[in-house]
Design a protein around this nucleic acid. Structure first.
Lengths: 251, 251
DNA sequence: CGTATACTTGATCGTTATCAAGGCCTGTGG
DNA sequence: CCACAGGCCTTGATAACGATCAAGTATACG
């Protein structure tokens, strides 16, 4: 959710100067703010807290999650450098946020942020686009949680990590997983044991090979994509009806 | 998702006239558009289609869904009178939309809508608020799909319907379910058999009593809320840490 | 080096999917 | 008005997938 566009960040910032200090991209808004540090495992805010600030992740990884009445935790997303935290809400945070790794971030007062975005015809569509990306990610996650089995879920997750890595680095097959197995389990709606077993299964199949506890090598990205079960994203509009008729029934 | 605010619709529309034709609420934008009809079961658009239009639901119920590669269907939401369809996207629809019941709706060109909202300092926060509501709904659905068992899921769904009904009608205990069991199943990530069995179980417990195929009486709303397992929405920020420590592990 | 934490593996159980059959509304045509 | 057909729903039997319980192993950190 709220994927990064930080590749063009520096460029946009220089453009901002040209337009008499009017920032052109969302990140440039945060540029003047001091960088704050958050140790691994520390909380940034809690679900239900008054939402006084937004944050931009400068470095590190955050998890955002909800706790159910009986103590079960649902991680609704991980946030990386360039992502914004705390946008999709009104008066109170929708979720809690914690540092997975040591995190560097910039803080922005909610009111000022909203005013700045509201005043700028450049920033508004950018914020809107981010919300839409976040919405699309949320829907993909619903599909995953509704339909996919353990293997498909884990493959989808690994694929997601691989894609993110490839956006910032050419031709990588080594991805790092800074979060724990429990984090992954709570994100995918599974248990740590199932994560562990499925990981072993993928290793035995030769799809991945472990490279330390928080790192993994993707040996067969194609197989991984196939096992993720997203069906190569074939959005043939006319075939939707057909697919509905011969609908399988697996959960 | 995109909950209705239609109670204040008429008022806002009259205010719009005062401000020299500048519409004050999102629905008033659609007021001039002709009402279109869609028979039950017919498609409004397909996932992946170029998103040329937005729609306002005037009457009836829509389902929005995605079809997976193997034909499985995930219903990501139902839309009712006052809801907007097709907002959270960019160039292509994120999901398919079909009429559950005969539907009346108003169409608006995407470009015109975006221009109108972009130009209006009144409309912008309204659209933003709707997106946030939609996001909150999506996250609740993720929690449901991640953690809740069949009974909790069905109770959550029934409670959702009851709340919606009560927003427009005082003290109702009779709700109608225009969608089929298959729709409910695909929305809750279950099968029709499980929906049926759970419904019977709730009937035996005296929590609900069936009133025809597409209608149901909520005999014990309190029990229903308790069984839904949302824990009375107790957002005590300090207790989040405690809850995490004694976290249960059920999926 | 030792301890705590994270992870892996194994055995068993439970919930829900799946397969199968029967019953009930709904709408249609005689 | 009734009979029939089709879809929709319910109920039952069985199986599978993943949760849970339990034990053992590896890794990070003091």
């Amino acid at each position: 959710m709220l994927q990064a566009n930080h590749a063009v960040q520096a460029l946009k910032y220089s453009e901002a100067v040209v337009f008499g200090g009017e920032p052109i991209c969302l990140q440039s808004l945060f540029k003047k703010q001091p960088v704050e540090q958050l140790d691994a495992g520390r909380s940034l805010f809690f679900e239900g807290d008054p939402a006084k600030h937004l944050f931009e992740v400068v470095e590190g990884v955050l998890r955002i999650f909800k706790i159910m009445a009986d103590g079960r935790r649902v991680i609704t997303g991980f946030l990386y450098a360039g992502d914004l935290v705390g946008v999709s809400l009104r008066n109170h945070y929708l979720y809690s946020a914690e540092a997975v790794t040591p995190v560097k971030l910039r803080r922005f007062a909610r009111k000022s942020f909203e005013d700045a975005v509201s005043d700028s015809p450049e920033l508004r569509p950018q914020l809107f686009a981010r919300l839409c990306d976040e919405m699309a990610a949320a829907q993909d996650q619903m599909v995953l949680l509704s339909c996919k089995n353990a293997e498909e879920r884990l493959c989808s997750f690994l694929l997601q990590q691989l894609r993110r890595k490839r956006e910032q680095e050419r031709a990588t097959d080594l991805i790092d997983l800074p979060m724990t197995r429990l984090d992954i389990a709570d994100y995918l709606g599974l248990t740590i044991e199932t994560i562990s077993r499925t990981m072993t299964k993928l290793t035995n199949k030769g799809v991945v090979s472990p490279a330390g506890r928080h790192s993994i090598r993707i040996a067969k990205p194609g197989t991984l994509a196939h096992l993720a079960g997203d069906g190569d994203e074939c959005h043939d509009s006319s075939s939707s009806v057909v697919a509905f008729d011969c609908a399988g029934r697996r959960h």
